[in-house]
């Protein structure tokens, strides 16, 4: 799964990147990233680069972890043993992806506890997509196909992002994620070839997930003020709109292949651009979800906080056990 850099408008205004940096070091750093060199944890880096990365990587990690919730609640209801095993493996992968990313963010000087606290207190953002409910089994198909599909589109270029630990985490994530998309598409394919109600269910899921998936690429380029900086620093390799267009271009034929209709009346092949033209995105909805007004935003955070609190005794017991063992070993 994936998140793009999400902030609401107040945070955007409060982030002037003007910290005075040593000009010689800054120039050397700029030259390194411009030459596609990787930056590693102990290397000097501008404070703004570090801050942007901590925000982006931790949001990405949070999205993986919160992303386990909408799918996790379907594991027990998956329609066959095969589907259960597949979904369980996928959800476990998302947990793993969150852990790779938290570890990558920690190399920048933040801690796991700080990041988790920021998520639970609502200060940290995660992908808007997970604040939509999963109402039917077809939603699990739509998530795998569209949400993971959009995620892959975003993450493939991040394998060459300039920060080494982030790039390495992305290589691992991308390798694991392609099954996620294929299993989702397969669910949709089977439903679309099924009975009339099954096909309706698939179409309904596509109708509800299409626009939120398109929004996953983040605001349009003209409203994404830090994109230029992130591209110059090779944190991002392609702009939100470039990735969005690519995603639409590859996904439309996939829908056609299984007889489902993309819910966009303005969608039209543009011969001159060699791309699809698409309708206006409701960015007000996007910003509302970023602000925490998504349909199930509260439930998601409640579930996260509950899991964390319910697990407290396990963490304490493991710590106590380790301390006891250490004391015993020291005495021997």
């Amino acid at each position: 799964m994936y998140t793009t850099e999400l902030r609401d408008k107040s945070q955007k205004q409060a982030a002037p990147i003007t910290a005075p940096e040593d000009p010689a070091r800054l120039a050397a750093f700029e030259a390194r990233v411009a030459a596609d060199d990787f930056i590693e944890p102990k290397d000097w880096m501008p404070a703004a680069y570090r801050k942007t990365l901590v925000r982006q990587i931790s949001q990405h990690a949070h999205s993986e972890i919160v992303g386990m919730l909408p799918e996790g609640n379907w594991i027990t209801r998956a329609p066959s043993l095969r589907r259960k095993a597949v979904l369980l493996a996928k959800v476990q992968d998302e947990g793993g992806h969150g852990l790779y990313l938290y570890a990558a963010a920690e190399t920048l000087g933040t801690s796991r506890e700080e990041m988790i606290e920021a998520l639970h207190s609502g200060r940290a953002k995660y992908s808007t997509i997970f604040n939509y409910p999963t109402l039917t089994w077809a939603d699990i198909g739509a998530i795998g196909w569209l949400v993971d599909g959009a995620a892959i589109m975003n993450q493939v270029p991040l394998q060459r992002t300039s920060y080494g630990p982030y790039a390495r985490a992305m290589v691992r994530v991308c390798k694991e994620e392609s099954f996620h998309q294929r299993q989702g598409y397969e669910i949709m394919m089977v439903l679309a070839a099924g009975t009339a109600p099954q096909k309706r269910m698939a179409q309904d899921a596509l109708n509800r997930w299409w626009w939120p998936s398109i929004m996953m690429f983040g605001p349009p380029d003209e409203n994404s003020p830090n994109t230029a900086q992130s591209i110059r620093w090779r944190i991002k390799r392609e702009t939100n709109d470039e990735l969005r267009q690519k995603f639409i271009d590859v996904t439309v034929p996939q829908a056609e292949a299984i007889g489902l209709a993309i819910p966009d009346p303005d969608l039209k092949w543009n011969e001159a651009r060699d791309s699809y033209d698409y309708g206006a995105v409701d960015w007000e909805e996007f910003y509302a979800v970023v602000r925490g007004e998504g349909p199930v935003a509260k439930e998601r955070m409640q579930a996260r906080v509950k899991a964390w609190e319910d697990g407290a005794w396990v963490r304490e017991a493991a710590t106590a056990h380790a301390a006891k063992r250490e004391t015993r070993e020291a005495a021997e």
Partner: peptide, 18 residues
Amino acid sequence: GSVHAADPRMALEAARDT
């Protein structure tokens, strides 16, 4: 990569799962 764990055995198990 890396993992957080309370002791060596847990670190091995977490590494295996992750």
